[in-house]
Nucleic acid binder design. Sequence first.
DNA 1: TTGTGGAGCCGTTGATCAAATGTCAAGATC
DNA 2: GATCTTGACATTTGATCAACGGCTCCACAA
Lengths: 251, 251
Amino acid sequence: MLTKAQIESASDVAARSLFDAIVDQRIPPGAPLRLKELSEQLGMSMMPVREAIRRLAALDLVEIEPRRGARVRELSLADLEDTYFARLHLENIAVWEAAQNFTADDGAQAAAALADREAAQEAGDRVAARDAHERFHFAIYEASQRTWLIRSILPAWRNSERYRIGAMRHIETQGTRDHEHTQILSALMRHDGLEAVRWMTNHLTSSVRLSAQHLISETGEADREISLPKVAEVVARFDIAAGIPAEIPTV
Amino acid sequence: MLTKAQIESASDVAARSLFDAIVDQRIPPGAPLRLKELSEQLGMSMMPVREAIRRLAALDLVEIEPRRGARVRELSLADLEDTYFARLHLENIAVWEAAQNFTADDGAQAAAALADREAAQEAGDRVAARDAHERFHFAIYEASQRTWLIRSILPAWRNSERYRIGAMRHIETQGTRDHEHTQILSALMRHDGLEAVRWMTNHLTSSVRLSAQHLISETGEADREISLPKVAEVVARFDIAAGIPAEIPTV
DNA sequence: TTGTGGAGCCGTTGATCAAATGTCAAGATC
DNA sequence: GATCTTGACATTTGATCAACGGCTCCACAA
């Protein structure tokens, strides 16, 4: 069986290239995105590049000033904190919902993505590893079958990649990450929503800590405690929600 | 003090016109969006229209098939349910967070939007009323100061407008809606997060019920119970979260 | 039922228009 | 005389336009 031949439009190529370049900081925060310059580098006209920039702006990775062009959004501890606040809430809801109706097929897809990720990691292919990582997480979220919730997750996810990639490049904590991934997946396969939420929260919390450390070391921004919901608090929410009997009358 | 002269680009005009037309069903669900046709109607070339369509596609109001053009997404009970599931979770989190640091200025802005809405309603200006309604809700959400969370809300919000506008056009339940709005606002001014969440949940729950009724009556889709979190369940989550002492150790 | 031709439409291009900024010299101010 | 302000001009860059090329779909014929 052949998969449908995916023809990639010029603007698809541009969007992907720009996203990679921004995440890898080949285009650093604050840098202007000149249409002419980029279109020459990518070997296409200005319009597909323009469209790609608008797409990234829809994800809020770049800022557009009318008639003045676009520039890459700056990174900051406040933005990092804000991003992970959203991710903690949104992705835990998705995980919680996913636990209810997690199928063997969902599990297989997630496991395959995890395997791809490790293979790419071995091969030193960072882009492929990042791609597989995203596939793993979203395979889980899609099991929730809450389409609009999943759509809401993507912008914050993509933004967090900007912080995560740099932080993960050097530091060797891959073992811990892999373990967290496996624990989330196995909890879901057991339909144990609470345990899945617990591990997801740990996963995100440790991610944000590493990212913050890295950011502080790079920019010299003042070190401070990041204010995020505590693991126990997050877990407690879902715990109590599960205990509410259905027959409680709505107000 | 003069506010900066806001020049509206051609694609801004196109995006707004198209959004209004889709919400009002002047362009019905499933209808194709032909670049040439629209550009002639709007008196501009195809390119700004094309960009406007891509913007609406980013909000998932229209679907783009490569080389085949765009069409307005169909409405369905499942999509409505899904949309409000996301809204219930996301907007309640925002309201809860807003309650903590709600300022008098936040209150003033929200109250002004409410007043605008009633004035527009009197004048029979549906577009202005819709606009003011959106300003009211987002004035509240912005008080949470959780930027990425707020951004995540917008797509689902805009999608729900497609269902809500039709449902609200004929039915006269404006009194109830106004009361709910006022209650949400006054709870926030008292920093009573739990009460604000309770009223917000009621507000959304009654919205989705009306929208579902209207949709069923229009499309003849089979009537069925919509599955959404119960008010008590939603409220309980925040109730318990508030009770978790900060010193509980993170896992 | 299957292959072919033509019409319609989107994606892309290169050119044009217009806004915004930088430059620089003349004049005002101290 | 040195410094700052002002205004015209040139340059850069984004926004828009009109036309081309290629893909998709439908009708029609074998």
